[in-house]
Write a protein that binds this DNA or RNA. Structure first.
Lengths: 129, 129
DNA sequence: CGTTGCGTTGACGTTAACGTAATGAGTTGT
DNA sequence: ACAACTCATTACGTTAACGTCAACGCAACG
């Protein structure tokens, strides 16, 4: 049952990032692979965390924000106060995501009209033959 | 019919950015306010462009990407080749937006489970009387 | 046993996106 | 006339998020 493990370059290839980037994320306390000697060994859990970071980045989260997400995601450190602020942060993020949804929808509309105008302009200028 | 105009600080206050930021965007060729002497005069069109930039930023676009969006948005420079690459860029952006939608939905799910776990942990540790 | 490949740790370099003075011109109120 | 605003330009500073060497360890391969 010893779940699969990954080398740093395996992870890098699969998720399309550089090893430098992966090490950097570790340096920032976002990943904590175990070691075999000097070598970093990544578990599926680490892989999930990394994917979470990359997903965050795609929607414009800073690494600090991604780090928070990871901390939320893990079940660990639980005194009362912590958990309350966790819940607050979750609420906050949710609001942000909602705003982003709106922004994206708006963008889509704008792309629609942009495309229309582009096609209209193309119809006006058919110097292509 | 001379539509409304704005001073730089008016725009800054309204859209909650610094004047430095606005000037910076101009420096990057993303805004082109007219001048009255030295003073910058912003039209509603400029204001729209600025809002477009800020919306882009909220979903993680770089300024370079935002600039492209603005260029798409305006009707102007139309030779055939340009228009074709415009359409390509539009398609590309649409794909990106779709991916972002997926990412956001995934995040929302993760926040759901994070909240659940948080509440569960709170139930386990009710040292708060 | 040399070199090829993957891994490691520094350490300095780079780019984007502004922040932060410093300084000066032009107008507005008292 | 002078202070108080608002605007401008110029220029150096800063932070985040890596990129890019350099120099080394060690395992396998022909």
């Amino acid at each position: 049952m010893t779940a699969k493990t990954y080398s740093i370059s395996e992870l890098a290839r699969e998720l399309d990032v550089t090893t430098r980037t992966i090490r950097f994320y570790e340096e920032q306390g976002m990943l904590s692979p175990t070691r075999r000697g000097q070598e970093r060994i990544y578990t599926p859990k680490d892989r999930v965390a990394l994917k979470l970071i990359l997903r965050g980045k795609r929607i414009g989260f800073s690494l600090a924000e991604c780090k928070e997400l990871i901390e939320l995601y893990d079940p660990s450190l639980g005194n009362r106060k912590q958990l309350d602020t966790f819940l607050d942060k979750i609420t906050e993020r949710r609001a942000q995501l909602e705003q982003q949804l709106l922004d994206i929808q708006q963008m889509q509309l704008e792309l629609d009209t942009a495309e229309e105008r582009c096609r209209a302009a193309l119809a006006e200028v058919p110097e292509g033959r």
